[in-house]
C-alpha cells in the first residue's frame, strides 16, 4: 500500500488506521479541552459582569485605627 509516496507494505491499511485514529482522538481531546476552557471563561466573565465575585475577590475591609 502506497501512502503519500511512502510504501507501507501489504499491511499498510492497519498502519494507516492506527495513526489516523490516534490523530483523531488526540485532536478531539485538544478541541474538547479548548472548547471547555472557552465556555468556562465566558461563563465566568458573565458572572463577573453581573457583579458576582469570588470570596477571594471581595473588597478588603477598610482599616480604621
Amino acid at each position: 500500500m502506497d501512502f503519500l509516496g511512502f510504501d507501507l507494505g501489504r499491511h499498510g491499511g492497519y498502519v494507516l488506521a492506527a495513526y489516523v485514529v490516534v490523530a483523531f482522538a488526540v485532536t478531539g481531546l485538544l478541541v474538547w479541552i479548548r472548547a471547555d476552557r472557552r465556555r468556562l471563561e465566558r461563563e465566568m466573565a458573565e458572572l463577573e459582569a453581573a457583579g458576582v465575585r469570588r470570596r477571594s475577590q471581595r473588597a478588603k475591609p477598610v482599616q480604621t485605627d
Partner: peptide
C-alpha cells in the same frame, strides 16, 4: 509532553469550573 500539556490545561479548566460553581453557590 502532550499528556502533561493536556493535563495542565484540563486542570486549569477544572479550577475555573470550581470557581464558577462557588460563585453560583454564593449567589
Amino acid at each position: 509532553l502532550l499528556f502533561v500539556a493536556m493535563h495542565l490545561s484540563a486542570m486549569r479548566n477544572e479550577i475555573f469550573r470550581r470557581r464558577i460553581r462557588s460563585m453560583r453557590v454564593r449567589v
